[in-house]
Design a binder for these strands. Structure first.
Lengths: 370, 370
DNA sequence: CTGAAAGCGCTTACAG
DNA sequence: CTGAAAGCGCTTACAG
């Protein structure tokens, strides 16, 4: 079966069409169709005729024409990096929050993707050409140089910006505290040899989590050991490889009691690396994540993790942006706290258990618990 | 620290601004800025001056003005249902495919969400008001009545449409065959009592999977048993509840050898229901999914599943839509096969194993394997 | 080779 | 209470 498009390029009805059909001017039609306030001045009978014509012709005001006049497209933009062909769970979760807030305010949201924040800054500018009223940046890593090139006629909001962006409200969560609390929790369970698999070194979020980890250690007077800080990236596969390599390198050495991972993807990578060696979680080793993305609930065992309210943060980002846009339009001044910091929350599931104490031989490539 | 917006509403530079700055007309600036073909007619020196002015003023052609003239917004729309506050993994995967194809063609994509296809058809029409050039519908369940109201001035493409939509190209996968192949695989592994937990009854995809399941059974001369067809919905939690209820209802009865689930979410729900009773997968029971969403790889054990190439299907949807848009614009006729059917693929992971044969008592609430 | 005009579809003042 | 005009920022014919 084939589907052939009709050959006449069908056009949507315009205000002029409606006016013609109702025997009035386009302007009269506009007044009626735009609501009570203006249309009260038009005779009821005329009004009815216009309404009928509009319905019959399925009239919809053209969004681009409207936008040209109103300087308002009623859509917000969202930019995120797309790595390895897909958006990660973190960005998706935020995007969902943005989407619902925007829909709630009758705004559309259009998604832009970048391969690299550094190289693609120019594209960012290109999108601020009237097609959106404001832009949300998800986890931008822009240097100050690039940040200065952001257009000033479009309001920006960022989530987890890696640097302080001038004139950009940043929304973040209390990552240092989240890391601190989680490691403190592990310690309270009797764990002492606690490993941290970090996110990309140099990224502000990764450093904050490392700081929280170190602070919790110091607080409990557990000496920090460089060998237990495994640098990885926020991509699960990297973490899996890093953990596997670590286990191989430390064959015969004591296994850590617990691993605190800089995000859920890393935790899943560790889960896989451990499964490969027949290590059981949490029996042989406890694993904690960070973020509480959807994936944290679909692993077995489910992940104990630090919850960042990503959807709520996305929602807030959209709300802040929308008020920024409104103020920007009427030239008003707007004072927002900057950054806006969300509290994190511990989510206890089953990948973390109390310390067992007993040493264990790992099958295959045997490290030994101290 | 607070961030105060500058009070003068900054405006983007216009063509007139550029012309003024370069001492030429807006039209001359337009010609130069729009590329070689037209700009060849302008003196090199003038040209340079215009280019310099545009760069200095950071000129970007206004997208809405351009769209008004060209009848082309260079953005495609995507509509999906948002359930329980979030897009599901299935829709996200497709969306990612659309996104990359659109970006590749220099098109934006804006995402629209619906709560209910039936009630919200009018909104669908409202979005076809010039802000998008075409629309992709993800898994629409529209009745013919509603489908007829879709505007004819905007091209549509659907993925997994639940009904045949007039003038809409539908993209789907060979679901019946996928179900058939998976159940045949389970049978070849020695399983006989094979359960199917279905998607929403009445949805064409769910019915196709049921048909494939039945056909494979019939082919192997295994009688179909109504009690092994457990109706659920595509939401994992429903499936979990349905499976738990089934297990309770059939306490003392033989446990199935294997469960074929209508999607990965359902399979995860089953995994949870089994874990709750201490049943081990695949030792006590094999579990197979459908879709191969990201979640299929983060479960333990990882899911054996029928892979629908969701990203590729999204990509194809965008490509088809884009050519539909191009033809629509120049009034041409376009013949596409309809529906476009993608092959599915078996993905073997560890949630399915060969039949053990031995009867097992389920701890707690004991069904017994026959 | 260059400029002035018309028009895309709408809304917002301004006249009658 | 109603219509004719101007303008949003651009592009596409059409004159010079």
């Amino acid at each position: 079966m084939t589907n052939s498009n009709r050959s006449k390029p069908v056009r949507a009805a315009t205000l002029a069409d409606v006016g013609r059909a109702a025997g009035v001017s386009a302007m009269a039609a506009s007044a009626v169709l735009n609501g009570a306030r203006t249309s009260s001045r038009i005779a009821a009978e005329t009004r009815a005729r216009i309404l009928e014509a509009a319905a019959r012709l399925r009239y919809r005001p053209n969004a681009t024409a409207r936008a040209l006049v109103n300087r308002r497209m009623n859509t917000i933009g969202v930019t995120a990096v797309i790595g390895g062909g897909e958006l990660n769970a973190y960005a998706m979760e935020i995007f969902t929050g943005i989407l619902s807030a925007a829909a709630h305010a009758n705004q559309n949201t259009t998604m832009f993707t970048l391969h690299d924040w550094g190289r693609d800054t120019a594209r960012l500018q290109g999108w601020c050409d009237g097609r959106i009223d404001g832009m949300i940046l998800i986890a931008p890593t822009l240097d100050l140089e690039a940040a200065k090139l952001l257009p000033t006629h479009t309001p920006f909001v960022a989530l987890h910006a890696n640097t302080v962006l001038p004139n950009v409200i940043n929304i973040e969560s209390d990552e240092e505290r989240g890391a601190y609390e989680m490691v403190r929790h592990l310690i309270s369970l009797g764990h002492r040899r606690i490993m941290h698999v970090s996110g990309n070194r140099g990224f502000i979020g990764a450093e904050r989590r490392i700081n929280g980890y170190k602070r919790a250690l110091a607080n409990a007077e557990i000496p920090f050991s460089e060998s237990l800080l495994v640098p990885a990236t926020y991509v699960g596969d990297t973490a899996r490889a890093a953990m596997s390599a670590w286990l191989k390198r430390n064959a015969g050495q004591p296994l850590p009691d617990a691993v605190f991972c800089a995000n859920d993807g890393i935790a899943i990578g560790c889960l896989e690396a451990f499964a490969e060696l027949g290590l059981r979680v949490p029996d042989d080793i406890s694993v904690a994540g960070f973020d509480d993305t959807l994936a944290a609930r679909t692993t077995v065992p489910q992940l104990t993790t630090v919850r960042q309210p990503l959807q709520a943060m996305g929602t807030r980002a959209a709300e802040v942006l929308l008020s920024l846009i409104a103020r920007h339009a009427d030239g008003g001044v707007l004072d927002f706290p900057n950054p806006i910091v969300f509290p994190v929350e511990m989510v206890m599931r089953s990948s973390v258990a109390a310390a067992r104490g007993s040493a264990r031989i790992v099958p295959g490539n045997p490290p030994v618990r101290s």
